[in-house]
Write a protein that binds this DNA or RNA. Sequence first.
RNA 1: GGCGACGUGGCCAAGUGGUAAGGCAAAGCUCUGCAAAAGCUUCAUUCGCCGGUUCGAAUCCGGCCGUCGCCUCCA
Length: 481
Amino acid sequence: MALKIFNVLGREKQEFTPLNPGFVNMYVCGPTTYDWSHLGHAKNYVNFDVIVRYLRFSGYNVLYVQNITDVGHLLETDEDRVIKAARKLQVKPMQVVEEYTRYYFEDMDALGVTRPDISPRASAHIPEQIKMIQTLIAKGHAYEVNGSVYFDVTSAADYGKLSNRKLEKQEAGTREVVRDDKRNPEDFALWKKAEPEHILRWDSPWSEGFPGWHIECSAMAKKYLGDTFDIHGGGIDNLFPHNESEVVQSECANDAPFARYWMLGGSLTVDGVKMSKSLRNFVRARDALEKYRPQVIRMFAMSAHYASPVDYSDAGMQAAQAGWERLYGAVRLTRSMLGAAPASDDSNSFRDRLAAARAQFIEVMDDDFNMPKAVAVLQELTRDVNTLLNSGQAVGRPVLEAIESTYTDLGGTVLGIIPAGEAVTSGDSAREAGLIQLLIEMRTAARKAKNFSESDRIRDELAKLGVVLEDRADGTIWRAT
RNA sequence: GGCGACGUGGCCAAGUGGUAAGGCAAAGCUCUGCAAAAGCUUCAUUCGCCGGUUCGAAUCCGGCCGUCGCCUCCA
């Protein structure tokens, strides 16, 4: 079974064949770091994280580039959003960028999102952007007016092919407003001359100014991945104009196809409306992390196919949490049983069940990264694992290890929802575990003596402290809530 | 208005021609001293509505209704 990807370019599911066998060059549009990351970012970057993890799990050598936008991303009012934030906070623009870039990585790290291999910043690639703009001017795809440079969308026959937009046949100026000095209303800025109060500014052949928003991705993708590369990811909300502009300017400048596969993630919504900063309906990623474990947020992000929207709600998060706890409960039970398991081949036939789960997992992930179905595969496996482990029949160490590694590989390495283990390392945790074990033994003695008021008191008091006891045929185990 | 996505049980959701995965919630049961955890059972003759194609459609085609996204602020 070969990997298939729904390619937004052409809007069909296609077999994935990398440009160079065994290697995947991938670019994903990153955030503009002038404010906190919210769950919308978390959803999208968790999805792409799983995509990258799965590609690597499948044996591909992935080069993953994700930019940090720190300049040129203007508001509708033509204000630079970074400068605006800096003015509000009374700090230098680059301080804003530094601070929120740091927070962004902190939040993504906490969510278990693997860092991109390269995180290039727009402001560090001004020369590359200027060079690309010069190429576009030389080829007649861009023009300079009053120190600013615009891309002429009528110069490219296939402009609009990604978002399926066609230029309206109309003459410039017939619209009510033709902004700036553009020849066509649809032309977009490659370089903008800076007004005196605009602090973020660089020298260029045309003026002291700053690059447009779209050119950074084209320039940095070219620099690190080449003219043509395999996968370009991002959020569906940036399909137009951002992604469309990237495609047209890159292909015009490079005379080569740009990204071969486009993968765009669905938006996170709240009550059916997109979570966004401007609507002020967002939940910061770090606030969500205070309330829910990172694995639960990842489960939630994977509750629908990556290209579909996901609606945020407490009920949705709680469903994700309940589902996760059942999965993780099976893993925890497996690990606790490993401690005293015999090195026998008891229950060895269960290996077939594990192999089937692996095969199913790969099959559904190969089908355009069907994460909800991949989770379902683990959930079905979990039912059988629980049945086996609670059956009372002997289970040998090799099988337990095979169960553990199945969860670790599929749920851990690929999906990032199964932690590697709760290693008790610090002195305090080891002491705590010892004390809990002592209380468990005291309770066991009380139960044997049928002193249930005493045994229930120990259980209830521990529960109040966040330690839940579970009585099993082979003894009592505990877990922290 | 243009472009695009979508509408599946109480909720979330998979499913692109062969007779409805999975999770959450709910109810009953088993296990337990009681719990917890786990397992079992029940829970859509039906996939927004109306037509059509077909031996057969949630899946294909047409129309209608509704929701959402983008159309130079947004991952």
